[in-house]
Amino acid sequence: MRPGDIKILLVDDEASILQFLELGLRNEGYQVMTASDGLTAVNLVREFHHHIAILDVMMPGMDGFEVCSMIKKMAHTSVIMLTARDEIDDRVKGLKLGADDYVVKPFSFQELLARIEARLRNQFPHLLNEVTIGPFRINDQRKEILFNDSMLSLSNTEYDLLRYLVINHGIVLSKSKILDEVWGYDFGGQENVVEVYVSTLRDKLEDDDHVLIRTIRGAGYRIDLP
């Protein structure tokens, strides 16, 4: 991962939180721009061209929800919202407006770093040299995946499928969703092609008992990692 290539926009009206996060993220190597109100944040979007926006929900004037809605229309960005309230309605509202993740205050800095890295893996994989997720090491530039430090021999489609499953570990992925994301929306084949490729991956991972790539009956597949 090259943090120096990654830009993060921090928006929070609490100066202490803003300073703490800015210092921590700069120490991790990220480029950081800060704003203490929503209007300033929106104006910065045009000049900073950030990858990740971290928005506080409760701000005077233009709140985090409004900022999220506006910047999602202005730029290709991932939004992580900070909220002091773990309310379902708040999370649903934010997600409908385009938020990609939520972190509830108080939170650990390491948790926020993990959320940032997860968003980068999903939305900006070209910024990552190599990503380690559990026993997997994924190198997008070389189109290689190592499992427990052993190189897997994968076709292009096997690589794309395994990468998609690993990056979304813990999430049940339906066959139709997998087809759309791996084979493409215009793929005219049958869903059973997913079963064939999953079976091949299980063989290569020596996952005979299906404990790594799990079949969730009637729903799809899920990779479980430690």
Results as ranks from 00 to 15, higher is better:
43 N>Y: 03
43 N>F: 05
44 L>F: 14
45 V>E: 12
46 R>V: 05
46 R>M: 01
47 E>W: 01
47 E>D: 14
47 E>S: 14
47 E>K: 11
49 H>K: 12
52 I>V: 13
52 I>D: 06
53 A>H: 02
55 L>E: 07
55 L>V: 10
56 D>E: 12
56 D>I: 10
57 V>M: 11
58 M>Y: 02
58 M>T: 08
59 M>P: 05
60 P>S: 13
60 P>E: 15
60 P>K: 13
60 P>H: 10
60 P>T: 12
62 M>T: 14
64 G>P: 08
65 F>D: 02
66 E>F: 03
67 V>L: 11
68 C>S: 11
68 C>F: 04
68 C>M: 04
69 S>G: 12
73 K>F: 00
73 K>P: 00
74 M>E: 15
76 H>F: 03
76 H>R: 14
77 T>N: 14
78 S>K: 13
78 S>A: 15
79 V>I: 14
79 V>Q: 06
80 I>R: 05
81 M>Q: 05
81 M>A: 04
85 R>A: 07
85 R>H: 13
87 E>C: 06
88 I>N: 01
89 D>P: 00
90 D>S: 15
90 D>F: 11
91 R>S: 01
94 G>A: 06
94 G>H: 07
94 G>N: 07
97 L>K: 14
98 G>N: 09
98 G>T: 07
99 A>K: 07
99 A>P: 05
99 A>I: 05
100 D>W: 05
102 Y>V: 02
102 Y>W: 13
102 Y>I: 01
103 V>R: 04
103 V>Q: 05
104 V>I: 15
104 V>A: 03
104 V>Q: 04
105 K>D: 11
105 K>Q: 12
108 S>T: 11
108 S>R: 12
110 Q>A: 13
110 Q>Y: 08
110 Q>H: 11
111 E>R: 12
112 L>N: 08
112 L>W: 02
115 R>D: 01
116 I>C: 07
117 E>D: 13
117 E>G: 03
118 A>W: 01
121 R>G: 10
122 N>F: 05
123 Q>P: 00
124 F>R: 02
125 P>Y: 10
125 P>T: 08
128 L>M: 13
128 L>A: 03
129 N>K: 10
129 N>S: 13
130 E>D: 07
131 V>H: 02
131 V>T: 15
132 T>A: 14
133 I>D: 05
133 I>S: 08
133 I>H: 08
134 G>F: 02
136 F>P: 04
136 F>W: 03
137 R>G: 02
138 I>K: 08
138 I>F: 10
138 I>M: 10
140 D>G: 14
143 K>N: 12
143 K>P: 00
144 E>C: 00
145 I>Y: 08
145 I>E: 07
146 L>E: 15
148 N>I: 00
148 N>R: 14
148 N>P: 00
149 D>G: 00
151 M>A: 15
152 L>E: 10
152 L>N: 10
152 L>V: 12
156 N>T: 12
158 E>Q: 15
160 D>C: 01
160 D>P: 00
163 R>T: 10
163 R>Q: 13
164 Y>H: 14
166 V>K: 03
168 N>L: 04
169 H>I: 00
169 H>F: 13
170 G>N: 09
171 I>A: 09
172 V>D: 06
